[in-house]
Amino acid sequence: MRFEDQLRDALRPLDPGPRFAERVLARLEPTAKPDTAEPSALAVPVLARPRGMSRLVALGLAASMTLATSAGLVFLETQRRAEGERARQQVITALRLTSGELNEIGRRLTAAAARVETVPGDPGRLEERVP
């Protein structure tokens, strides 16, 4: 026998044995259909890649959506910080106003006290100083 024929004989394909096809069929998902089957509109998942769309286009769309979502989140965070800063400034302004008013009240009280004198010999009686 020629060497090539010996090789051919040695490499004859073998059958995988009984029930191989059944083992394959058992691994198919119960609802799996070949990709020629027309999908029901209700059966198409929201995130499924539409038929005819290339994987590259789908990836591009997914990346764009991720970028847009990230940009939106950054914008919202910036707005939230700006609002916080505005509120802080309002509180500081209010505190400054309050402080100014208190100073004014203190100044008036001091001025009023300066106009009042203690009556000599009667520590309990006050006498308004005549300017």
């Binding site: 394909p13 073998l14 059958d15 995988p16 191989f20 096809a21 059944e22 394959v24 069929l25």
Partner: peptide, 13 residues
Amino acid sequence: GGLVRERQRLVFG
């Protein structure tokens, strides 16, 4: 399943 049975020798072999 019929397709698998007809081609299983080729693929497995």
